[in-house]
Design a binder for these strands. Sequence first.
DNA 1: TTGAAAGCGCTAACAT
DNA 2: ATGTTAGCGCTTTCAA
Lengths: 314, 314
Amino acid sequence: MTTIKDIAKAAGVGLGTVSRALNGEPNIRPDTRDRILTVAWKLGYRPNEAARQLARGGFSSTTIGVVLPSIIHPFYFEILRGIHSAFSEIDKNMMVFNLGAYEELVVGHIAKENLAGIIVVAAGISHDSLSHLNAQNTNVVFLDRHEDHAVSFWIDNMLGGSLAAKYLVSAGCGKIAYIGDSGESQQQDDRLHGFRTELSRAGKTLSNETYIHIDEKTAYNAAAAVLQSGGIDGVFCFCDRIAYGVMQYMKEQSISARIIGYDDAPASQYLGLSSVRQPAFEMGYDGAMTVANYSKKDKPKSRVFLPVVVDRGS
Amino acid sequence: MTTIKDIAKAAGVGLGTVSRALNGEPNIRPDTRDRILTVAWKLGYRPNEAARQLARGGFSSTTIGVVLPSIIHPFYFEILRGIHSAFSEIDKNMMVFNLGAYEELVVGHIAKENLAGIIVVAAGISHDSLSHLNAQNTNVVFLDRHEDHAVSFWIDNMLGGSLAAKYLVSAGCGKIAYIGDSGESQQQDDRLHGFRTELSRAGKTLSNETYIHIDEKTAYNAAAAVLQSGGIDGVFCFCDRIAYGVMQYMKEQSISARIIGYDDAPASQYLGLSSVRQPAFEMGYDGAMTVANYSKKDKPKSRVFLPVVVDRGS
DNA sequence: TTGAAAGCGCTAACAT
DNA sequence: ATGTTAGCGCTTTCAA
């Protein structure tokens, strides 16, 4: 391994001069600079980032951490795409952490990495861990998760729910069912809240709620159970994947009911499925730009609410 | 920021002892160890990874670099999902680099990061950069790219092409067209080569080749041009996105022709589109496990060929 | 079992 | 413009 010491010796100069040359600092004679650079190149020199960081007491500043849940839905993928796209524009890199079983471990690891910032996507980080992160005075941005004293981007799930309800109601549905995810989530709660509120405003109520493990097959089965009970003519699904299963059942049984999904997955437009579109890519993009740019002085505004829209299947 | 020095002072011990306690080394009295650990905890101590690395002269060993093209197709996304899934199993993290315009810059950056290994996805890294990487004796694995003196996973595109041809031929197509990507790629060349070979084995030949910028709309237009010319009853598309555009045109015009895509995108099964399925997720997963596990001593076998299969639309 | 001290490779402040 | 030196926080001898 070549060090600046080797270069200094080979070029017959001092360590400081080498450092200056390598870092493109001004106070150095062009010809010595060139000589040093040539030697460095010939020796195959590569700076040791760890040493550099240590000496500067600084941060890597070009790498930003992204904490992801270990299972990625298409929705998170869109977010990730947005982040990736932003970072490729501004020449940052991301370090992706899997928030799996050992949260403590991961958080400790993150704190050690000297990152310029962190984006936490949807993951359920404990408040304890959070304050650790904050103590490291790392810039943190939350996506799809609402944190009180932090910068967070949040999709308006209540709006999404109420739009879904409006869609079904205005389509003339009378008996409406919901098929959701059996896991707990703030997102689902909010959507349902918005959905119910809008429904009751229209003088209607939810006739059936079924919660399943997300999967086309279980969705198919759930659809069978829900639709056989009779009279259901409108279904709101927690996500498009569930909706696909439902659609398939409806197609096979020639049942016609209005159905609306959530996420607006790429497939949906081709399948003619109406769906609530979340600005996932944008959220990723904006979030990424935000961590990358913010300084402690002018902290960006917390709580950015992103609206959703309904995409009508053709 | 708390350092081991602070801890040493607070606990009334030497630096070495603190280090030993923190690293769980054996030669230390349990009670001093506990005392130190308590102090460290109270002081909110976090080890400085840079300093550690520097002192040990070691590698981060828990982080693996992933070089991605800056534009991500769904196919690459599947690969990424596979990588992510593997890494969450074995508790590694990935550092994602965008291989954008400034290849040299990125490669330099990578070399500096002290990574345990690197996965290069599909990207066109120059041989020069490659040898730099090799000189750093970093483990490198290529995905969807064939490199001679490196470990590389490669999908059998020739097989894919020939399977597509078989599909169309056995469906009784007589006049066959190809709609491809206007960009250059080894992948496309291989697919076409396989396709042509199989076609000629069946005594047929390609009647029309059209190359477009990938996009549903241009695909739609291309389909119009290709299918209007008359008699075409089989179309092979470079990817499913192109196929969607073609299908839409066919549907609108009530034209019936056999069509086969590539990638087996999630939407395709719902749309009833037959497609060549590439084991993208598996490739990511296997590749990730490979970089993570290999040691210079028993280098894993280079050139892993992954087969494809045709997924028939229902 | 523990403390002291010598670096790891680099930067930055201080001399020259 | 350039050389010298003192650390950055940590690990690891080497003594004690």
